[in-house]
């Protein structure tokens, strides 16, 4: 009897599968996930978790939150991040303090693993959703993340 039971069960499961795909077929016009990219360049918004490139957000006073702790540089498995830093006199306390000169990010070497962003204790670097990263020369892929003249936000190191 299980012979015919198997046939009935097989037909039932096949019909279940067909109803699922048939449902998708009927609703394909509304739910099409295709992005017709160059046409919708203005309105296209990448989803939040997309890993485009690493950026360092600056606020309106041109201040970032990077303390130069170099944890991202250590965390990076292929040396995409280089931090050039210096000990300078802090104008407020008068003590010598570690400050970044340049936070260099080699986009060409980055594998978008995200370990630097996880390692950052102050959330100074983040993922940007920008995906149009093609350039005409390789040297453009080396980016300095901190803007010129920027400084670390006060109180972030406490």
């Amino acid at each position: 009897m299980s012979y015919f039971g198997n046939i009935a069960k097989g037909i039932k499961t096949l019909l279940t599968g067909m109803s699922v795909t048939g449902n998708y077929f009927l609703h394909s016009r509304k739910g099409a996930i295709t992005q017709q990219y160059p046409d919708n360049r203005e309105t296209l918004k990448m989803f939040d978790r997309f890993r485009g490139e690493v950026v360092m957000p600056h606020d309106e006073n041109n201040e970032h939150t990077c303390t130069g702790c170099q944890k991202c540089e250590i965390a990076c498995p292929n040396g995409s991040i280089e931090i050039i830093w210096d000990r300078q006199l802090d104008p407020e306390t008068g003590k010598k303090k570690k400050m970044i000169d340049k936070h260099i990010y080699h986009l060409g070497m980055c594998t978008m693993c995200g370990l630097c962003i996880e390692a950052c204790p102050t959330d100074a670097i983040l993922w940007a959703q920008n995906f149009e990263n093609s350039v005409y020369d390789r040297s453009y892929l080396t980016k300095v993340l901190n803007k010129p003249g920027s400084k670390v936000k006060a109180g972030i190191e406490d």
């Binding site: 795909t21 998708y24 077929f25 394909s28 739910g31 099409a32 996930i33 295709t34």
Partner: peptide, 10 residues
């Protein structure tokens, strides 16, 4: 076309 519609593509 049919394959695309089944896969929610265009």
């Amino acid at each position: 076309k049919v394959a695309a519609w089944f896969q929610l593509r265009i």
